[in-house]
């Protein structure tokens, strides 16, 4: 069986080491927070200026001054810290953030990422913090479906969408397989409801099986 987004999020969470500082991108990557073990000391960073962000706020907890990068009201945890935007992005570029998890339109076999702009003429470009995260975090994990709704692969030899970052993606978590981008090419770690051979046949990217 292929994985749903919650199962994909659980796989990402499994690979985040205890004590990591982690940024979860807007959209599906935020689901990863639900699967992080409470006792692992993992600290969530939100680029609008907070470390040790807690879960989404509900009811009386909602405070318009306390939101995440997706502008959703969130909560503090003991040990939270606030800081301004220049510090927040210095944390990323300075190599202090261990992992970020991002969505993607496309990832290339070399780990190039395209996730900010469809490139369509009437689309209004909006990049937010995606480019900063892509070059800043020590490890960049992408969480996406492997194919578009019309069946086009999103793991590609070269991105055709405008790039977010060059060679920045380390791992890809999809509904059908997980991949590691290595200097020697794309390695398939696990497959879900599809064989390695079938996966290879449906992607234009050379794949290697994990040893």
């Amino acid at each position: 069986m292929s994985l749903n987004k919650h199962e994909m999020a659980a796989l990402v969470a499994r690979d985040i080491e205890a004590g990591s500082f982690v940024n979860l991108g807007i959209g599906q990557p935020t689901l990863v927070a639900d699967h992080l073990p409470a006792d692992a000391g993992i600290v969530l960073h939100t680029e609008n200026g907070m470390l040790n962000m807690g879960p989404a706020a509900t009811g009386d907890q909602i405070d318009p001054d306390l939101i995440n990068a997706g502008k959703v009201p969130v909560t503090e945890l003991p040990g939270s810290a606030y800081f301004h935007h220049a510090d927040s992005f210095a944390m990323m570029r300075g190599g202090h953030l261990d992992v970020c998890v991002l969505g993607a339109f496309q990832v290339s076999a070399r780990g190039d990422l395209a996730n900010w702009h469809t490139g369509e003429p009437d689309a209004i470009p909006a990049v937010g913090g995606a480019m900063d995260l892509a070059v800043g975090a020590k490890s960049v994990y992408v969480m996406m479906t492997l194919f578009t709704k019309v069946g086009t692969p999103k793991l590609v030899p070269d991105c055709t969408y405008p790039l977010t970052g060059l060679g920045c993606v380390n791992r890809i978590y999809t509904d059908l397989a997980t991949f590691v981008i290595t200097a020697g090419g794309v390695v398939v770690r696990e497959t879900f409801g599809i064989s390695f051979d079938e996966l290879s046949a449906r992607l234009a990217v050379p794949l290697r099986e994990a040893e």
């Binding site: 680029e47 935007h85 220049a86 990323m92 570029r93 937010g128 800043g136």
Partner: peptide, 24 residues
Amino acid sequence: PQGNLAERMRAAGAGIGAFYCPTA
């Protein structure tokens, strides 16, 4: 990019003439 927006203003406020940044 959001970090460049912040850092370009930080540079302005700190008297930095320009800076090299890996983003983008």
